[in-house]
Write a protein that binds this DNA or RNA. Structure first.
Lengths: 213, 213
DNA sequence: CTGCGTGTAATGTAGCTGCAATCTTCGGCT
DNA sequence: AGCCGAAGATTGCAGCTACATTACACGCAG
């Protein structure tokens, strides 16, 4: 399958590389600069959509087309919502695939980043704006960064080191409860704005954001 | 058909406008700012793909999804190659359409050199002219460049390095608050002209332009 | 020469942010 | 169950830093 595709691409003077595993694909995406990534879902070392999600999480801008046998509407919706830009199910016409690749390449790499929303809270990483219950709420920089980091993984624990890294990118900062202080201030604002989410501490590990009981 | 779609979108709090003809669609695209354009092919006054081609010819950046009964592979290829970003044939599942619209909206508009307009401010990169509330306002070169860079990504943060790069293309220019000074002067002019947009600082990162509260 | 554009520097300022002191909560242990 | 220690929560405060603004000087163009 891959071989046939590579051959078709080569015949049209499209340069392409091929790898078999998610791990390799991730490495290639990290190093190389590609116009488009074509991805199957059922791969030797896992589910292709996990790679999509991982790349998007890191804000990797490469356009991604998922090409797979899993073709129900639900499959398609899942694929697109995981961050893929197009989804084509087998069987497919090679000409259509090529046209879709052209469309993706034409459009270029993404500039945008997904709106993060959870409960009645939504975060726009592009403008660093946060709205709660529909109205804009101002957050200072560091508080914003903490909240954004939490919102990138709602319902999941984000470790203290991760949070500190998110806020103090390179700068060194150790030995204080600065992070706790930020959390506290964020909580106060969430309360003020009547957010339906809350930040819970996970002892010895970190924090997570989740919907209020 | 259009009514059903509008209803489905409205139910999900997606704002949408609907027109019946190519002429109207063209007018709307020219005036308004839309995240995505959904287009049928067989329209009362012509072939939808002609509109796609016309918009692309003018470098219109809006993502376009063609939604039509014409669903052969050739139809699809033609649609995509005319400049559309996605092509969905009837019959289709509403959920898939919505997912595809999300994907397009996520990715955002293509870069372009057409009129940049936001709020009551508009910038013509070709002539380097700026109008506020309909009347032309003179900006010196450097101020113009800063404002254009911001207007290329309204509501998004533009980093200081990006801005500096935009203004001082090759020349070396470090160690001063020249950029801040420009921003300040631009702000003064925006105020004078009663612009409905404002420039906000994002601490430690850069600036962004957005509509005034 | 004059006027505008632009970089620099000085100065002002707001409000973020880290800290520490104190209080509260939680989990483990007997 | 109850106690204790440690982790987390909270809050006032003070220093500071990044940004804002203004004035000024230099340079180039008409």
């Amino acid at each position: 399958m891959a071989r046939a595709l590579l051959e078709a691409l080569r015949r049209r003077d499209v340069l392409a590389d091929h790898v078999r595993t998610i791990a390799d694909a991730e490495a290639m995406a990290r190093i190389g600069t590609y116009d488009v990534l074509v991805l199957d879902r059922r791969l030797p070392d896992g589910e292709g959509l996990d790679l999509v999600a991982a790349l998007r999480q890191r804000r990797h801008p490469v356009p991604i087309l998922v090409l797979t046998a899993l073709g129900t509407v639900d499959h398609r919706v899942d694929g697109l919502d995981s961050g893929a830009d197009d989804y084509l199910a087998k069987p497919f016409a090679i000409e259509e695939l090529l046209a879709r690749l052209r469309a993706l390449q034409r459009r270029g790499p993404a500039l945008s980043d997904r709106y993060l929303s959870f409960g009645n809270l939504s975060v726009d990483p592009r403008s660093s704006e946060i709205s709660i219950a529909g109205s804009l709420v101002e957050f200072p920089r560091r508080e914003y960064l903490v909240l954004e980091a939490l919102m990138r993984r709602p319902n999941r624990i984000v470790t203290r080191p991760n949070l500190i890294e998110a806020v103090y990118a390179l700068e060194d900062e150790i030995g204080s409860n600065a992070l706790d202080a930020h959390i506290s201030r964020i909580r106060k604002k969430l309360l003020m704005a009547e957010a339906t989410v809350e930040i819970r501490a996970v002892r010895n590990i970190g924090y997570l954001i989740r919907t209020k009981a």
